[in-house]
Simulated scan of single mutants.
Amino acid sequence: MGQLQQKTPKWVEDLKQQAQKQAKTMRKVTAIAAWWLFGMVFTSLAAAAIAGALAATN
């Protein structure tokens, strides 16, 4: 039982570090996805504005 008690804190610490690393990765992925979404919305808005302007002149 002594070995188990010695290994448990390291195992818990390893899990904490892995969880922190995954959380950091998810924050990066979320930020990238948000910028992509912003870009898509902006592009769509610009295309709609151009189409509206073209429709109004014809």
Rank of each mutant, 00 (worst) to 15 (best):
M1W: 09
M1Q: 12
G2R: 14
G2C: 11
G2K: 12
Q3H: 15
L4G: 14
L4Y: 11
Q5R: 08
Q5C: 09
Q5F: 13
Q6H: 03
Q6G: 04
K7F: 05
K7W: 02
T8W: 08
P9M: 06
P9I: 00
K10S: 10
K10R: 12
K10V: 06
W11A: 06
W11R: 11
W11M: 15
E13V: 02
E13N: 03
L15H: 14
L15S: 14
K16A: 03
K16E: 03
K16M: 10
Q17P: 07
Q18A: 07
Q18T: 05
Q18N: 07
A19Q: 13
A19S: 09
Q20C: 02
K21Q: 09
K21W: 00
Q22L: 01
Q22S: 09
Q22D: 12
A23P: 14
K24S: 12
K24Q: 07
T25A: 13
T25Y: 03
M26G: 06
M26E: 15
R27G: 02
R27V: 13
R27Q: 12
K28Y: 09
K28M: 13
K28Q: 08
V29Q: 05
V29H: 02
T30C: 05
T30W: 05
A31G: 03
A31H: 08
A31C: 03
I32G: 05
A33N: 12
A33P: 00
A34C: 05
A34S: 13
A34T: 10
A34H: 10
W35F: 11
W35Y: 12
W35C: 08
W35K: 12
W36H: 08
W36L: 13
W36Y: 11
W36K: 12
F38C: 01
F38W: 00
G39Y: 03
M40R: 04
V41F: 02
V41W: 05
V41T: 04
V41E: 06
F42T: 06
F42E: 04
F42G: 06
F42I: 03
T43N: 01
S44Q: 08
S44E: 11
S44G: 15
L45W: 07
L45S: 15
L45C: 15
L45H: 04
L45T: 11
L45K: 04
A46S: 09
A46T: 13
A46N: 08
A46K: 01
A47R: 05
A47L: 10
A47E: 02
A48Q: 10
A48K: 01
A48N: 04
A48T: 05
A49D: 07
A49F: 11
A49N: 01
A49Q: 07
I50P: 00
I50K: 04
A51S: 04
G52C: 11
G52H: 05
G52Y: 06
A53N: 02
A53V: 13
A53R: 07
L54S: 03
L54C: 06
L54R: 12
A55I: 14
A55T: 11
A55G: 14
A56E: 08
A56R: 14
A56G: 06
A56F: 13
T57P: 01
T57V: 14
T57D: 05
N58T: 10
N58A: 09
N58G: 07
